[in-house]
Simulated scan of single mutants.
Amino acid sequence: MVRFSAEDEEEEEMVRGGGGTKRKLSGSGQEEEEEEAFKIAAQSRDLEEKRRRESSSTTSGGGGISATIDPDVLDCPVCFEPLRPPLFQCQNGHVACSSCCNKLQNKCPSCKLSINYSRCLALEKVIESIKVPCPYAKDGCKGKLSYAEHLSHADTCIFAPCFCPMPSCTFSASAQLLSSHFDDCHRDSFVRLPYDVPVPIFLDCKDPFCVLRGPRGEIFLLLNDEGCMNSGNRLSMACIGPQGLEGALRYELAVARNGDSLQLKACMTNVKKWMGSYPTNVFLVVPQDFQVCGKVIVDIRIQKQLP
């Protein structure tokens, strides 16, 4: 058994730190060396933890980095569209997109030197590596897009806001939420319309449009340009939704009166917001003689082209 004197017991103390406990003994330099070792070990652990936190906060998937860049340098100086490979440069390093080079007969728009189809591979690599979020990320789109494609994606994104066409209604959201909005707020303002089945619609000749609801919740507009050239009504159709649906649907309009008939077959136009304008290239003109008590009876059939 080891015994300590009263003097030793007074000098004895417990020192905690660095995850351990040690006894300080007088008469030697051992306690100073041990204390210094504990401090160094604790500092080393703290430094390593700090480096780990900084590393995890500044790096992302694939070791990518975040940076700020002026988007003007990523657009063609001629057409102002996003640059996309292949990119060509003149002897002075001025860059233009391939379509503009052809239009300018391979003359640099900045210095007029010949471009000679010299590829700017470094800039191509930079542009291909840049990923940007969808403009409608806050609305739910999770896509990470190349800079060259982000604008075209925005036109077709299913999260792009679509606007309610009803008078005095300011609601806007994705096409799916717009469909739910009609269920909640305009339940008596639309006619349900199945695919591939003709449905008669009694259209008031003074109404600018009639709202139709597709089997999957699509919102269609039967547009009525009343008083067209004082010869009757000009009818056409549009679907409220992203442009990605363009051409996916075909429709048929048929009007009959006293043995005479009129018919139109066309592709559906897509709009995100109806601005009160009417198509000028595809429409069905219905003369006033086809009206019945201020109404036009239109048989509508919508054919879905894509699954």
Results as ranks from 00 to 15, higher is better:
residue 204 D to R: 09
residue 248 A to H: 14
residue 243 Q to K: 15
residue 245 L to V: 11
residue 279 P to N: 08
residue 242 P to D: 02
residue 230 N to G: 00
residue 88 F to G: 04
residue 264 L to V: 12
residue 95 V to T: 11
residue 81 E to M: 07
residue 281 N to D: 14
residue 236 S to M: 12
residue 113 L to K: 13
residue 149 E to W: 13
residue 146 S to P: 13
residue 245 L to N: 11
residue 66 S to I: 06
residue 305 Q to N: 02
residue 166 M to Y: 05
residue 224 N to K: 02
residue 164 C to S: 03
residue 103 K to R: 12
residue 254 A to E: 12
residue 34 E to L: 08
residue 231 S to L: 02
residue 45 R to V: 14
residue 274 W to S: 04
residue 280 T to R: 08
residue 114 S to G: 07
residue 26 S to P: 13
residue 119 R to L: 13
residue 186 H to E: 06
residue 66 S to P: 08
residue 146 S to K: 13
residue 124 E to C: 08
residue 126 V to W: 04
residue 76 C to Y: 05
residue 247 G to L: 12
residue 159 F to C: 07
residue 85 P to Q: 02
residue 222 L to D: 02
residue 185 C to M: 08
residue 151 L to S: 14
residue 230 N to W: 06
residue 216 R to P: 09
residue 277 S to C: 03
residue 153 H to V: 11
residue 134 C to T: 05
residue 214 G to M: 06
residue 116 N to R: 05
residue 115 I to R: 00
residue 41 A to D: 11
residue 5 S to P: 03
residue 141 C to Q: 03
residue 155 D to Q: 12
residue 24 K to Y: 13
residue 39 K to R: 12
residue 104 L to H: 03
residue 285 V to C: 05
residue 285 V to A: 07
residue 294 G to C: 01
residue 151 L to H: 13
residue 45 R to A: 15
residue 290 F to A: 04
residue 254 A to Q: 09
residue 280 T to A: 01
residue 286 V to T: 04
residue 85 P to S: 05
residue 196 D to W: 06
residue 209 F to W: 01
residue 110 S to W: 12
residue 230 N to Y: 10
residue 16 R to D: 14
residue 153 H to W: 05
residue 86 P to F: 04
residue 288 Q to A: 13
residue 132 V to K: 05
